[in-house]
Design a protein around this nucleic acid. Structure first.
Lengths: 207, 207
DNA sequence: TTGACAAGGTAATGACCGTTACCGTATCTG
DNA sequence: CAGATACGGTAACGGTCATTACCTTGTCAA
């Protein structure tokens, strides 16, 4: 549908201004005039490129989702399970607690009721890929006998929750600033440790 | 004859209309006129009772938060740890996946940047109480030796994430309807099982 | 050089916004 | 019954909104 990269500088300026304003104020509270004031140029250009305010918003969400979540989860398959999970958890925390990602998430959640297909596309192009990748990692580990038999999908769901923990909830509400590297490493290590012990069948020990 | 504390019916009607509209459309996209059209009466009354649109919004958020999260977590202390955690997880899932709670959460997240103290008050009056209660339960269990020594705060944070798992994320994005009782019980049981195994010190068995 | 045409800046449009001034009315005091 | 007072409905106000018609300007072929 849309070209992956467009070399149009007007388009890039509009996108940058739209990102700053939509992510800060939300969709309804951001006016076309404010976007133009920040990006320069003319309203005419927005309607020529995007058709409407909602069209600009949709393009912004889609492109940011793809940019942020574009193929970041395919770590080296040579690593052991624990290292793979820790690497994934670290990456997830770094990504999800970034100011940009929080802004994107907030605005998608805010409009999820009025633009359901936009929220679905955000999830499909973004978080769902990480969840599926982790489910694959767990399925392979279970097949190799590294962990006990699990339902990969629900185990991945638990792992994601464990990594986000309550910390992500608080960050989304604006109660915490972004995490430092030390904090991220600590949360990731602790989540992986809890998870690996947690999914072992009752009464079994890790080797 | 008259009740000791008279609940103003105009105020209640305004609150009901405001809830339906703010939770559905968000703050900026909801107009005072639309609220009046739904609640009846006059705009004059809104400004007499709440001072402004934002005042009405703040009162709505505060009262809904208190109504939803008011003292629901103080279960019977006679139960065992596993039953206590399962009861809490079930309650949390029922509450957080309700349509009303999702609407409240969406709108608080959407306005978290512009009304930070509102988001903080939501958290303090709501989710934080559950987290603190669970932390207390875990601290007491650790002191009794039922579980190994843990940092109650970060263990509670992990437990909350584990219960919400990725399912809550998907519901907030509108990708899933509310959960059924069976689904909730399954998620709660599984989360508690993973958690209790997960927080045991490395190499220790549950009795 | 000139004509035409496309692109983008300007200003208009019609609707709607939050807020408040104004005024009728109903209730209460004397 | 008369007057005052507080409440709530109506309509207006100044501003802003998304969208579009109009027009200026720059470009390029002939």
């Amino acid at each position: 549908m849309t070209e992956p990269t467009s070399p149009d500088p007007r388009r890039a300026a509009l996108m940058a201004a739209a990102e700053a304003l939509f992510f800060e104020r939300g969709f309804a509270a951001t006016s076309i005039d404010a976007i133009i004031e920040r990006a320069g140029g003319s309203k005419r250009t927005i309607y020529a490129l995007f058709g409407s305010k909602e069209g600009l918003f949709e393009a912004l969400i889609r492109e940011n989702t793809e940019k942020m979540f574009g193929a970041p989860f395919f770590g080296a398959p040579s690593l052991g399970l624990e290292e793979t999970l820790t690497g994934f958890a670290t990456h997830l925390l770094e990504l999800f607690t970034r100011e940009r990602t929080i802004g994107l998430y907030r605005v998608v959640v805010a409009e999820a009721r009025r633009m359901p297909e936009l929220a679905a596309s955000f999830h499909r192009l973004g978080p769902e890929r990480g969840r599926d990748w982790i489910a694959g990692v767990l399925a392979a580990a279970a097949e190799r006998g590294e962990i006990g038999p699990v339902d990969p999908h629900s185990a991945a769901s638990q792992f994601l929750g464990l990594v986000r923990s309550d910390v992500y909830f608080e960050i989304v509400l604006g109660l915490r600033g972004p995490l430092g590297r030390t904090e991220i490493a600590q949360i990731a290590d602790s989540a992986v440790a809890t998870f690996l012990r947690g999914i072992q069948p009752r009464g079994r020990l890790r080797p």
